[in-house]
Design a protein around this nucleic acid. Structure first.
Lengths: 339, 339
DNA sequence: CTTGGCACTCGATTGACCGGAGTGCCAGGA
DNA sequence: TCCTGGCACTCCGGTCAATCGAGTGCCAAG
């Protein structure tokens, strides 16, 4: 149905439209790209592409623009992820090398990504459940109050204050500390329930009740309801593209303010090791139906820590942005693995 | 120069313009507000107000709109902070009452404020330096590595990892914990240097060197460079007003992404107990020259903890927004004082 | 000092017009 | 069978002129 030239025409349409923002006509297309055929032929191909739903035109006498389906085909078959320019590599290096702690890494990454892609950038903090325990500290704040401090291998520090029904002695707390510490140290948080399963039986009879209650609270707050965090940057970039369609701006901004939405965005990736693209209507998130989202996982094995990506207009430089997103993910992954 | 009626005319212009977004003419103004004078008289007053720079008109045959100076006079003399409606009070109550920790309080507050005012809301986390120490924990992560956990009276938990030049024994750390804890407990962080000044002399000779080095790091990271945090919400509200002037949107969004800028905004308040308004060009922040900023301090004595406020178009409901900002600040202040 | 009257200004709207980019279709040619 | 040039057609976008009306400034009378 679609021979090579038709595909070539589609590619040309996407590339031209992305760079000019204007519907592209048969004549200018035949001229600018060395297709070696006349505008009339291009028109025929265009008609075929339109029949198949890959392109459309706003009105009768206007040029063609790609549909979501057209972009999809372009991304899947017609474009190759663009490697970074040396300048971009240097930018990443110098941007990230000064980071002092996890917060700093994430903040710098998200800014970098926004700057590089000129889109809205989203970076998820290393997910708790997928991290492993570097240190777990239990502090005895008051007789019935504990402070839990968890430090993960990625440098994330999380704390919770626990209110207990019973009171504890310093000695009890020392026992708790010892019991939890020895079992969790180095373990991934996902495996915490298993690692702790034998704990009640092994513990001294005296503290078993309080231990089980502490244990359930710990598991609940750290494993069942781990707090995910997200950093966002570059919302100002939305104005570059969406001023043509001001009414789409509001829902996008609203969506971007919802942590849940962003997590969903980054979490929907099946295979976190490859760059993933959602185009326009493909987005499950209402309000982002007019945008495209490029995401990828980062961390060891390419996705163990979390996700990051960019949100921009469907008319975006997919090849470039995919390359940039992937590159930043790799750097960040290495940076955190080395920390 | 400006008699009562002229002031009344200015008030009417501001109120009409704020609610309609349209330049207001003499006729409709004379009708809608019961001024008891003819349009011609209103025109004379308008001419006087324009001479003084309180209002202006976009073109010859258009109605008048207030200038920044006009809004300023309106805020200072013509409007009274509007108390909240019962519905608004209830909204605040129900919105904030479920908060479980500081993060939650701040996040809920900023959303609430954005929703209430329909502007962009900004809430500063309780400033570290102005808080006092509820608990300071020193954890011995590794021979030359300490984890500092600070819990303030407002529930803010802050942690730093310290790398030391020397190695410490558990016993040393216990001494440190004891020495710092006893002196800082209950003290305000601002007073920390004074509270710790006698520490080196009082400590056992053996740990003096390391103690002074730890002390300097502690003071530096917690007092000299306290990390301020800011929460932001409601950026989507910008689209309601600024779509008339799309080009102003970008600088505003850019400014709002800069923590530094926001801190400056909230920090510039001289007297934190009263609601403060910066109108248009009065703003020192480039990029917010087209907006007005309403801020107030919160906490005991009305400002000890931090600041919060909203950013919106100069054409905003000052009386209402000032009331809402003040009310939220009070609630948040009480909530945190009671925590 | 207020008021009605009046001429004037100027943005906004409307409708007519036209140029141009682009299309779809067709018939002829390789 | 496929490509190509030609041609009529569509429709957007910009320009121009005319008109409308809200609003102003000024003045002379009350």
């Amino acid at each position: 149905m679609l021979d090579d030239r038709k595909l070539e025409v589609l590619r040309a349409i996407v590339e031209d439209f992305v760079s000019t923002t204007e519907p592209v006509g048969s004549k200018s297309l035949a001229e600018r790209h060395g297709l070696g055929v006349s505008p009339a032929t291009v028109r025929n191909d265009m008609a075929a592409l339109e029949d198949e739903g890959y392109i459309t035109h706003p009105h009768t006498s206007a040029g063609r623009i790609p549909t979501d389906k057209g972009y999809r085909l372009f991304v899947d078959q017609l474009s190759t992820v663009k490697p970074l320019s040396p300048a971009e590599r240097r930018a990443i290096q110098s941007f990230l090398e000064g980071a002092v702690d996890l917060d700093d890494v994430v903040r710098r990454s998200v800014r970098l990504l926004a700057q590089l892609t000129r889109q809205v950038a989203v970076v998820q903090y290393p997910s708790l459940s997928r991290s492993s325990v570097r240190h777990l500290e239990i502090v005895h704040l008051a007789p019935n109050r504990l402070l839990l401090v968890l430090i993960t291998d990625t440098g994330r520090v999380e704390q919770r204050v626990l209110e207990l029904a019973t009171t504890l002695s310093d000695h009890d707390v020392a026992l708790l500390r010892q019991a939890f510490g020895s079992r969790l140290h180095g373990a991934r948080l996902v495996d915490a329930p298993a690692a702790l399963s034998d704990l009640p039986d092994a513990a001294p009879m005296a503290i078993r009740p309080v231990l089980t209650s502490v244990m359930s609270v710990v598991l609940e707050t750290l494993v069942d309801q781990p707090e995910e965090r997200i950093a966002l940057a570059g919302t100002a970039n939305l104005t570059r593209h969406l001023l043509d369609f001001p009414q789409t701006l509001r829902p996008v901004l609203e969506a971007l303010e919802e942590q849940v939405v962003l997590l969903k965005l980054l979490g929907e990736v099946n295979d976190p090791t490859t760059v993933h693209v959602k185009i326009g209507e493909e987005n499950n998130v209402e309000g982002l139906r007019s945008t495209s989202v490029v995401t990828v996982g980062y961390g060891p094995d390419g996705g163990a820590y979390g996700g990051l990506g960019v949100v921009g207009p469907t008319r975006m430089d997919y090849a470039g942005n995919m390359g940039q997103v992937r590159a930043v993910a790799r750097y960040v992954g290495e940076l955190l693995a080395g920390a």
